[in-house]
Design a binder for these strands. Structure first.
Length: 554
RNA sequence: GCGCCUGUAGCUCAGUUGGAUAGAGCAACGGACUUCUAAUCCGUAGGUCGCAGGUUCGAAUCCUGCCAGGCGUACCA
């Protein structure tokens, strides 16, 4: 619809120039928007103001020249007007909106989909929590955003892969092994010292118990080094499978799980370090190996191999990001917690050093989640091991409510997640507000079926009965959906869809309270059924991008 | 100190990539269920868009400088 208006303006401008009404044929990009105020029409363009300096004419005069030359072969326009400093407002004939409904019904689950991604191979890596403990709420937000962004990109024609990077190597894993081993030892001996820097959570005791169930006291007869290494692997594997379960119950399924350890085992880390040393991108100083991140815009150089010979996290990240591009991804998106933002310059540096431009690398930084209960902060100390896990949250408030709430804010804003609020089944909690639309319409459809109305298809006579202002408004809102999805994909901002759905839901509920769908008039009823079933399709369609279910009954 | 994020109604937040009179929900007040699900709707009230400059036809939005809060600034992960 917007495109039609654009074409109309373009043709009118051209005709105006041909006839001499406009002195220049240098036309800017035409922008058409939907004004907030209904009194400003259905669409509006600022072209006259933008062209004023080029045409050397006052904006309102330009607007007159364009309007004079407007051609409307399909008869979609009711009227046009010049307003304010020179806006041209277009008022559409209400019948011109009706074909949108047909499109929604035909495209159904694909309404709003596009090919703006052109099949480009793109990777979204998210969660990637260390397998040293259970997922918490912060990971939940990352999971909800990452998964949804990936869904939206897929919907917009990208070839998307969802990946989880497993940090199954390095010091935190041996600390985990030591923690589990010590708790295991406690099961057999008194007076075991448990250091501060070990993991204190209850899950460590659970894992120790499990290790005993599997092995009896066998581990005590091994060398400590062997036992710790066994416990590390045992614990990490167990935790990882718990993480997988949690994510699955949260509706998140990864295409690929990428192991850090395998990057080392395959020699990729050593190779990249050697290559960069030859290129003098990595150099030795004070017994350590340093990456010249400063040459790539970071504030200082960073250590890759410590003087004790151990690699840093950064070392494997260099190899990991190079590996992503080696696998053919044209764009790489990392979803991180905002506390890692200082890490961006060095990873960008690594990417640039491996010969890729940094615009192919995007980081979505997710701000922190404050967990509340009835407005009071819930303590979340990882040290003491007292934190509310994602699993707890899902079982308490449900996956749908949790995911929706995580997506009700721009990820760059900190989020207060109130457990009591999330459980409420009222207007405080927008997820039910949106799902309720789907359930209500489903209910109407069932009632219609009881009345013997089953064949709900496009029918000129029935559709032309849709003339109420609320009906036209609803169709206009529905017509905007594809653009919302596109914006959401371009900016990687799922919350745009969340807000759109709340908006559409609100328009529907208002309509529902004012007008009956099932009336005594067959044609009107059929038209309205066609309308609300289109709404239902968009609600389902949008919720699925967010990873939220669309219930038939509530 | 430096870097990133945030600052919009009493509270929690949107704001169509620079448009016209800045919008929702909650909370407050007043209304609507014998009719398709009241997990809903309608109405009233609520604003110096942190502050000060600048850019232009036009700024919550872009630029500069301040102020406030959060996070980060390891040969940790």
């Amino acid at each position: 619809m917007k495109q039609k208006i654009k074409n109309m303006i373009y043709n009118a401008s051209k005709d105006a120039y041909d006839k001499g009404d406009l002195p220049s044929s240098d036309f800017p990009e035409i922008e058409v928007e939907e004004p907030n105020a209904g009194s400003h029409g259905d669409f509006s363009t600022n072209i006259s103001m933008v062209m004023a300096s080029i045409q050397k004419m006052p904006p309102r005069k330009i607007a007159e020249a364009i309007i004079k030359n407007i051609n409307d072969p399909d008869g979609i326009l009711d009227k046009t007007e010049i307003a304010g400093p020179g806006f041209i407002n277009f008022f559409l004939n209400k019948y011109s909106w009706h074909p949108v409904l047909r499109k929604i019904h035909e495209q159904d689950a694909l309404y709003g989909a596009s090919d703006i991604g052109k099949g480009k191979k793109i990777q979204v890596e998210f969660v990637s929590a260390n397998p040293t403990g259970p997922l918490h709420v912060g990971h939940g937000r990352g999971a909800a955003v990452g998964d949804s962004v990936a869904n939206i990109l897929l919907f917009c024609g990208y070839n998307v892969e969802k990946e989880y990077y497993i940090n199954d190597s390095g010091r935190q894993i041996s600390t985990l092994g030591r923690s589990v081993f010590l708790r295991y030892k406690e099961l057999f001996e008194a007076d075991v010292q448990f250091p501060e820097d070990c993991y204190h959570g209850d899950y460590v005791r659970d894992l120790a118990g499990k290790a005993r169930d599997d092995n009896g006291d066998k581990l005590l007869s091994m060398s400590e080094e062997e036992a710790i290494s066994y416990c590390a692997r045992f614990a990490a594997e167990n935790i990882l499978s718990e993480i997988k379960e949690d994510l699955e119950s949260f509706g998140v399924v990864f295409d690929n799980w990428h192991s850090e350890q395998k990057l080392y085992d395959s020699g990729k880390v050593d190779k990249i370090i050697n290559d960069f040393r030859k290129q003098n991108i990595i150099f030795e100083d004070d017994g350590a190996l340093w990456f010249r991140t400063k040459d790539f815009g970071d504030e200082k150089n960073r250590v890759v191999v410590r003087s004790n010979g151990l690699t840093t996290y950064f070392a494997s990240d260099i190899a990991y990001h190079q590996d992503k591009f080696d696998r053919g991804f044209e764009r790489v998106i990392d979803v991180w917690g905002a506390d890692h933002h200082g890490y961006i310059p060095r990873v960008s540096a690594a990417i640039e050093a491996s010969g890729h431009t940094r615009d192919k690398f995007n980081v979505i930084l997710i701000q922190l989640v404050n967990l509340l209960r009835d407005g009071e902060p819930v303590s979340m100390s990882t040290r003491s091991g007292e934190f509310v896990t994602l699993r707890d949250v899902i079982s308490e408030v449900g996956s749908d409510a949790a995911r929706f709430i995580f997506l009700t804010r721009h990820y760059e804003s900190a989020l207060d997640f109130d457990l009591e609020l999330a459980k409420k089944k009222t207007n405080d909690n927008p997820v039910y507000y949106v799902q309720y639309v789907h359930a209500r319409i489903s209910s109407i459809a069932r009632k219609a079926q009881e009345r013997g109305i089953s064949d709900i298809v496009w029918n000129d006579a029935a559709i032309s009965r849709l003339t109420e202002p609320e009906e036209i408004q609803l169709i206009k809102t529905m017509a905007r959906y594809p653009e919302i999805v596109r914006c959401s994909a371009e900016n990687m901002e799922p919350h745009r869809i969340t807000y759109y759905l709340m908006n559409l839901a609100s328009a529907f509920h208002a309509y529902y309270n004012k007008h009956r769908v099932l009336t005594d008039e067959a044609e009107l009823t059929l038209g309205r059924l066609y309308l609300v079933l289109a709404i239902k399709k968009i609600i389902r369609n949008g919720l699925s991008l967010l990873g939220v279910s669309a219930p038939e009954k509530m």
